[in-house]
Nucleic acid binder design. Structure first.
Lengths: 224, 224
DNA sequence: GAGATATGAATGAACG
DNA sequence: CGTTCATTCATATCTC
């Protein structure tokens, strides 16, 4: 009996982030880079990475078609939502990658509990030397859980963009001051993974740049 | 937490009948037709139908392999019989679709009780207009129980074959006179769902054709 | 209501 | 790339 690869949660997050960042069909050389990155979290081969992206593309497109078809048939059908009673049951875009824009304000609870727990595998991964990889791990801290979602920090070298995963959603922000209101809307603030609230000036702009490799969480302050 | 589709008894019967009639892997357009038919009995989506056939094929094949393997290991094992004591308990082909040829004569009791009961859901389904569907509901009567099995009548248009469900087993018969002995063996007679015995001539051939859309039941007359 | 089973859903791996 | 198969996960159902 052949045993098949079972990607670790961290590996899935990495793959999803790369896919969602637009690289949906990495060329062979990038596939190798991705494989090397994934290997920090478990054994994986180039073929696995290749198949993963192939399946991801295929099923993403299939779901897109089905969604379109169902919208054609019944424009009232709410997109991306599995209807329990009533109409159609259409598998939507993978829940893991719910691209609900970062602007989702309330309803979001961030009881940020540090350190790995539950389903998150625990790894002692080292900092990447950043030799020839497109991606490199920069966080010396282990992945941890936030809102029952795995949070993992990776950085894309050769760019001023920091990629963090907030509640499973990859977010890319530029270095330097950030206009909170423009980027995330009102009544939202950023909290560092340590739990500390980030200060903003009277215009809602962060007084200091986000720190590369750190992770932050959007919380609603509508109740204050 | 997502709740999964739970097919209604009528839907399972329809799916089983299609599968057993040879359409084990319906193309996409037929899947849509099947879904539309199933929708008369409850909310269901194309994906559900797709998954159902995929699982049905897979598990049917697996059971076949397991059966073969167990026969290899122990040729004395009676085929198609679940072993109670001793080795592995191998589930055989689903009872609902037991393709034990229609020649099973005695041991069959058909206390045909009309009208739905027990686990059968009750529906007011309308006749299908038969516009562009491969299958259409032709029975104006509601599904009913026979031998504690749901009985449902569907017809495949564009064919001289009538499909009825007898005790859960889909049966396809041609229009016109039927040689009862050749088809079902001796000491067996057909009873209409109304309870009326169907007349046969001295050669055991039905004097009249089965009526399209009606349902009949095989009963043993070995005691007469 | 805990374990066993049945089965809908998902997905890695492959084929054509 | 679309489609299919094999395997696994998750949950509804059943039984004691």
């Amino acid at each position: 009996v052949r045993t098949r690869w079972t990607p670790k949660p961290e590996q899935i997050l990495i793959l999803e982030s790369i896919f969602n960042s637009g690289m949906v069909n990495p060329p062979k050389e990038d596939t190798v880079r991705i494989r090397k990155l994934l290997e920090k979290f478990g054994a994986v081969g180039d073929a696995n990475v290749f198949y993963w992206f192939q399946n991801r593309r295929s099923r993403s497109r299939r779901r897109q078609r089905q969604l379109q078809a169902s919208l054609m048939a019944d424009p009232r059908a709410a997109p991306g939502v599995t209807q329990q009673a009533g109409g159609r049951v259409v598998p939507h875009e993978r829940p893991t990658s719910s691209s609900s824009s970062s602007t989702s304000s309330n309803n979001s609870t961030f009881p940020c509990s540090s350190s790995a727990s539950s389903s998150a595998s625990s790894y002692n991964f080292v900092m990447d030397d950043g030799s020839d990889d497109l991606f490199s791990m920069i966080s010396s801290q282990t992945p941890f859980m936030c809102s029952s979602h795995l949070v993992l920090i990776i950085e894309c070298v050769d760019s001023g963009i920091i990629t963090v995963f907030i509640d499973g959603v990859p977010s890319e922000v530029p270095r330097g001051p950030i206009d909170m209101r423009a980027m995330f809307g009102r009544n939202v603030m950023l909290v560092h993974s340590s739990g500390e609230l980030l200060p903003v000036n009277e215009h809602g702009v962060l007084v200091q740049s986000l720190q590369m490799g750190e992770s932050y969480f959007l919380v609603s302050n509508s109740t204050t």
